[in-house]
Write a protein that binds this DNA or RNA. Structure first.
Lengths: 186, 186
DNA sequence: TCGTTATTGAAACAGTCGTACCATATACTC
DNA sequence: GAGTATATGGTACGACTGTTTCAATAACGA
């Protein structure tokens, strides 16, 4: 009885909205321009997501999901030296195709600094990479539950990403990562 | 002839506005609440600064000026081992009193990622620390115009700051910096 | 065809934003 | 006092925001 619901529409909209946010950023996001770009209406966005806040939450979850999938696809090679693995991770995360993800990642973090209450699990976005990366650098760790090595490795990666996105100086940042890889090897 | 201008008022307002921005962030900055907090009016803010954009530019310049002064005050001790100096810098920059500066620094960087045109000198905010820090780590540099070492050192600092501000885990980040200091010494 | 439920459009609401306009008040020289 | 330049207050404009309200349409089972 009655017209059947169409859950696919919400998913389609979510996918498109995620593309849009990855392209345009979170800061100035507004329902009307977003709806126009997605060939829908603010009315439908609220119909599907309830409120802008919930829409943003859904988009961030989707973006994170996509990032996790691609990371999982890329990480498998646990072979090779520590330097090779580290350089591989850097090459992957610093690639131009990853720039929208990196940008959104920074954007969310900063927004969380100003509105900590809106991101109850902000810390996870930092630490959940450790579970993935910790296993990669187990042989340079001091122990089985060594959190310091992944912390340092990820700090270097994030710090250099920060530098790269701001200055665009790939040569200098690449060399800095190489230097770190050398230090880590000794 | 006529009423004499009062340039001190603009300076006083600028100082207060900088305090306000450091406390509340740049993202949601609005003239009316700002004016109310500063016991003035939007009218006067525009009278003194011309536009919101110019006001923000003035505030950022002022914040940067303050940061530079405090960095200069703190850095002098070029004595001691590399580790001691690195730990000193970390202790200073990661101290709670610096949190508003760190937050604003990240905020401006991220805004620059979305609106590159608004920050023509965004790269400077990254590289101008090198001139100061480069001299501090000259003895571990590979040459007189070595940019890689300062790049790596600052990447570690920024990356760990990023981690610390998000997770608040001071113990883990402190230990990660110690590990890096050890690596750098060898 | 009719009832029912899902979907969608158009418009309006209440609020905020940066800014401009106009008048007035203030502090100075002559 | 007049003249003049600076400093304010008050107000309103136009554009935007997220959201709501009301009505219309669309797709199904009976």
């Amino acid at each position: 009885m009655g017209r059947p619901a169409d859950p696919a529409r919400r998913e389609r909209t979510l996918a498109q909205a995620t593309d849009y946010v990855l392209a345009h950023g979170l800061a100035g996001l507004s329902l009307r321009p977003l709806a126009a770009a997605l060939d829908t209406s603010p009315r439908m966005l609220l119909y599907d997501f309830g409120s802008k806040q919930e829409l943003v939450a859904a988009v961030l979850a989707e973006a994170r999901r996509r990032g996790a999938v691609r990371l999982a696809e890329h990480l498998p090679p646990k072979t090779g030296s520590v330097q090779e693995r580290l350089r591989g991770i850097w090459a992957w995360i610093s690639a131009d195709e990853r720039a929208p993800f990196v940008r959104l990642f920074f954007e969310v973090h900063v927004d969380g600094l100003v509105h900590p209450e809106a991101y109850p699990d902000q810390g996870e976005a930092i630490t959940d990479w450790f579970d993935t990366l910790g296993s990669t650098f187990r042989d340079v760790s001091t122990g089985p539950d060594d959190t310091v090595t992944p912390t340092l490795v990820m700090a270097v990666v994030r710090g250099l990403l920060f530098d790269l996105t701001a200055t665009g100086d790939r040569h200098r940042t690449d060399r800095a990562l190489d230097r770190f890889a050398e230090l880590l090897y000794q």
